[in-house]
Design a protein around this nucleic acid. Structure first.
Length: 152
DNA sequence: GCCAACGTTGGC
DNA sequence: GCCAACGTTGGC
């Protein structure tokens, strides 16, 4: 089983939305590195740390579980969607997504500034310079540390 | 709103 | 295939 961190902007889709929806497809990723992970690496049963970015207090805010493995992101071929891409077709899908289910909302969100003070998290991709990927793998150590912080 | 970092595009 | 220009991300 693997562990991942998914970034999201709470103004577009946050942990409260996932808690309400219980389960949702993670569409709209339009970056090749992230696409490859969605298509090839992220497996059913993998656990996801939900992270709020581009907001007042960037923080890890909860946990989700992967419930469906990579399949074509059909929002790409819908011109009415948020992130249409005419290069992607049903015959040759360019973009992929997974489905995730809500697991837990942290009582005590682990803020970015708090994470930076914790040595166990120092090698996490989120804290490294210039990190812009919207999702990436984290270690079990990172996952457990974040869940522990969030449950305090 | 600023700006550093980095991905993508497109001319050559 | 190089690289400058441009767009986007995301913390501050």
């Amino acid at each position: 089983m693997n562990y991942w961190l998914f970034k999201t902007e709470p103004t577009s889709y946050g942990i409260d939305d996932l808690m309400r929806d219980k389960r949702e497809h993670w569409d709209g990723v339009r970056n090749y590195q992230a696409r490859n992970m969605l298509r090839d690496d992220i497996k059913k049963g993998d656990m996801v740390i939900f992270y709020h970015s581009s907001c007042k207090v960037p923080a890890a805010v909860g946990v989700a579980e992967v419930v469906k493995e990579g399949y074509p992101d059909f929002t790409a071929w819908d011109p009415q969607s948020e992130h249409p891409d005419p290069k992607s077709t049903q015959e040759k899908p360019l973009w992929y997504m997974v489905d995730i289910a809500f697991k837990k909302k942290f009582k005590n969100p682990a803020t970015l500034s708090e994470m930076r003070t914790i040595s166990k998290l120092s090698d996490m991709r989120l804290l490294q310079r210039g990190n812009r990927l919207s999702l990436f793998p984290i270690s079990k150590k990172h996952f457990d540390t974040l869940v522990e912080l969030g449950s305090k």
